[in-house]
Computed example of a mutant assay.
Amino acid sequence: MGFVYLAALLAGIGCMLLLDHRFRLFFWHDAKAAAIVTAVGLVFLLGWDLAGIGLGIFLRGEGAIATGILLAPELPLEEPVFLLFLVLCTMVLYTGTRRILERRVQTQVAPGSSERERENA
């Protein structure tokens, strides 16, 4: 049972990438920008975790579903994988929501309106 959590995280990442691929939201929309955003987000969140660990705020809990492998004191192997999932999930949700809202605005503009009215909408 030691790899259940890691397997679930990897499955979640796979699902996010499948959604991304299907709707061309993040990596399949602009791979270079997505890689930069993902790397910056991951580094920021890992830094945040390490600062919390250093201050004694974040502690590793014992769990039967975790691997028990530590990358650093109080930093389990699953943590960077979870943070990667968090960044991917956030960006897929953000880009998907943005696309939905943009299409909603486009459909609310009357079909017979002028080009200027469409631009101001």
Rank of each mutant, 00 (worst) to 15 (best):
C89F: 13
E78W: 05
C15D: 07
I13A: 05
G54H: 07
V81D: 02
Q108L: 15
L70I: 02
L59P: 02
F85Y: 11
R116A: 14
L10F: 09
A31G: 09
R104D: 04
L83G: 06
S113R: 10
A110R: 12
L42I: 11
G47N: 08
T38Y: 03
L25F: 03
F44G: 09
G12H: 07
W48Q: 03
A7M: 09
G68T: 09
D30R: 12
F58A: 06
A8D: 09
L6W: 02
G2S: 15
A34H: 01
V109P: 03
D20P: 00
R118F: 01
G54R: 08
I100T: 04
H29P: 04
F82K: 01
F26E: 00
A110D: 13
V81Y: 00
H29G: 06
R104Y: 12
E115Y: 15
L45A: 08
A34L: 09
V87Q: 02
R22F: 10
F58Q: 04
R22E: 05
W28F: 15
G12Y: 10
V40A: 14
A72T: 02
E117I: 11
G63F: 12
T67L: 08
A33S: 15
L9T: 00
R98Q: 08
P111G: 09
T95C: 02
D30W: 00
G52M: 06
N120T: 14
I53F: 07
V40Q: 03
H21S: 11
H29F: 08
H21W: 12
G12D: 04
L55Y: 12
G68I: 09
S114I: 11
R118Q: 03
V92N: 03
L10I: 07
R22D: 03
P80D: 00
V40W: 02
A34S: 11
Q108I: 01
L88Y: 06
G63W: 11
L88E: 04
A31P: 12
G14K: 04
M1K: 10
T95V: 00
E78S: 05
P76L: 07
R99A: 08
